[in-house]
């Protein structure tokens, strides 16, 4: 593992953060009355699109998973389709989990689903980019000593921190502060976003500090 790798990781992560920041400011140019809280759902969609786009671009440019095999176009298409299906499935799966956690079943379905979409964007999309539609690889990355590169390590950290952020975001909901961001699911989406950003920032730093201890099986 070289320091240049860590530097590349840091830059890509900063780009992801930049995309989130852009998703807050760019729409204000084109849309009237746009704000994160007032038109939260619009922002959710935009943010999700931005982050996905940046992830895809980064994946195409940086190519962190060096696949030696040259594959045919049809293979690529099926792979892309599979990725879409996986993304949708993860959205539905997360939606079900939210409902099991106490989200309303019938009211606010759209809100809940969009929350699932944004959380999938923060977690599933990087997984798809890095590991492809390969559940076994996913499961491997999220187990003890399962990571094989700093990219996977970063993925592990950002995904877990996104989930923790979303989880922490649920805590202000019962408080009687009467703030607009306490409404379901705004605090959770904000929490997930903060968690994602925190993960993006902290993962290169953490890897840098622990670079002596980290030994990956060479891939």
């Amino acid at each position: 593992m070289k320091d240049t790798d860590i530097k590349r990781l840091l830059y890509t992560n900063l780009l992801c953060i930049f995309s989130i920041v852009l998703s807050i400011f760019i729409p204000t140019i084109f849309l009237d009355n746009f704000s994160i809280l007032e038109t939260h759902l619009t922002w959710l969609c935009i943010c999700s699109a931005f982050v996905t786009a940046v992830n895809l671009v980064l994946y195409l440019v940086v190519k962190p998973n060096v696949s030696s095999r040259r594959s045919s176009l049809s293979h690529k298409v099926t792979r892309a389709l599979k990725c879409c299906i996986y993304f949708l499935l993860s959205c539905f799966f997360l939606h079900i989990i939210f409902v099991l956690y106490g989200a309303p079943l019938i009211e606010l379905v759209l809100e809940t689903f969009l929350f699932a979409v944004i959380l999938s964007t923060f977690t599933t999309v990087p997984c798809l980019c890095l590991l492809g539609p390969n559940l076994k690889a996913w499961l491997r990355v999220f187990s003890r000593n399962g990571v094989t590169s700093i990219w996977e390590n970063s993925l592990q950290i950002t995904t877990i921190s996104s989930f923790i952020g979303a989880w922490l975001g649920a805590f202000p909901i019962p408080l009687d502060w009467e703030r607009p961001w306490q409404v379901w699911p705004i605090s959770c989406t904000l929490g997930a976003t903060f968690g994602y950003v925190a993960g993006l920032v902290s993962s290169p730093l953490w890897i840098y500090w622990n670079r002596k201890q980290l030994t990956y099986k060479s891939s």
Binding site: R140, N145, G146, K217
Partner: peptide, 13 residues
């Protein structure tokens, strides 16, 4: 299922 690297695992599971 988790074929890749279990080396260096301190705790034998």
């Amino acid at each position: 299922l988790l074929t890749v690297s279990r080396l260096g695992s301190s705790a034998p599971t």
